[in-house]
């Protein structure tokens, strides 16, 4: 799959999944997609449907209510698919670490994850860095 991986690196369509975050990470993701950072330079594009997505950007502690839906979303997206957990919520819970309603700490309890970008919230630069590092592991 050498050639294919080379190409998929240059055309990444992301789908933004908000799985019960505090909403701050989502705002940072939207910030990332504004003309200021212009990630279309790298071929990254936001799509509105999980069917078109190559990367799921998941934010938040996955609550028990969201967990089955997140799983369903993962299964409905077309493979090959990568999952990036955005924010400390997906690794350690951040603000919600003592909450009773957390199914996904860390996120891979719910769906397979390829990379994490910790930070509360992470800067857009950190997210670009995370995605670039993830793509660097593709051979």
């Amino acid at each position: 799959m050498g050639l294919y991986n080379k190409i998929i690196k240059k055309s990444i369509w992301v789908f933004h999944v908000s799985a019960s975050p505090c909403n701050n990470c989502d705002i940072e993701i939207l910030d990332l997609l504004t003309p200021g950072y212009d990630i279309e330079r790298f071929g990254i594009k936001l799509v509105g449907s999980a069917r078109h997505a190559d990367v799921l950007l998941v934010t938040g502690v996955v609550s028990y209510k969201v967990a089955p839906r997140l799983k369903q979303l993962y299964e409905q997206a077309a493979k090959p698919l990568f999952v990036v957990g955005i924010g400390t919520c997906t690794t350690g819970g951040a603000t919600f670490k003592t909450s009773y309603n957390k199914a996904g700490i860390p996120l891979e309890k719910v769906i397979p994850v390829n990379a994490y970008v910790p930070g509360c919230p992470p800067k857009p630069e950190a997210m670009i860095d995370g995605v670039v590092k993830l793509l660097g592991t593709l051979k």
């Binding site: 294919y4 190409i7 998929i8 240059k10 055309s11 003309p35 212009d38 279309e40 330079r41 071929g43 069917r51 190559d54 409905q76 077309a78 493979k79 090959p80």
Partner: peptide
Amino acid sequence: SARVQFRVGPPFFQNFYDVFKLWGKEII
């Protein structure tokens, strides 16, 4: 469009990459 929004915009072969990538994805 990118220039209108003061961005740099995608590389020349971007649409070729996109379509090639779509050929390798699953059909659901």
